[in-house]
């Protein structure tokens, strides 16, 4: 049974703004199904009593003090951008409000 449908791949591709061809949708659906199948092997293990983990390290509370450091030079920063105006990054027309 396929763990991921062609429609799922098309949906995820749209969210990631990837323009996939019909052939690529088939190709990636197959490849992603294999990846998910491999990950699904974990389900075969008895994980009762194993707490969920969000990170491979056991380290917690890695923090820095609230002390200001140097920033980048604005001209240098804006020079990296395709376009700038009035000290700001210039971007193409936005089609909707912020999420």
């Amino acid at each position: 049974m396929a763990l991921i449908s062609r429609d799922d791949v098309a949906h995820v591709a749209r969210l990631a703004r990837l323009d996939l061809t019909e052939a690529e949708l088939d190709q990636f659906a197959g490849q992603l199904a294999a990846v998910l199948e491999h990950a699904a092997d974990v389900a075969a293990l008895d994980t009762a009593g194993v707490p969920p983990t969000a990170h491979p390290f056991e380290l917690v509370n890695v923090l820095r003090d609230d002390v200001a450091g140097p920033c980048l030079d604005r001209d240098e920063v804006l020079a990296m951008a395709p376009a700038a105006e009035d000290g700001r990054f210039r971007v193409p027309r936005i089609l909707g409000e912020a999420p």
Partner: peptide, 9 residues
Amino acid sequence: IHGADHSLV
């Protein structure tokens, strides 16, 4: 946003 030509960030 409506009718804007471009945006600055």
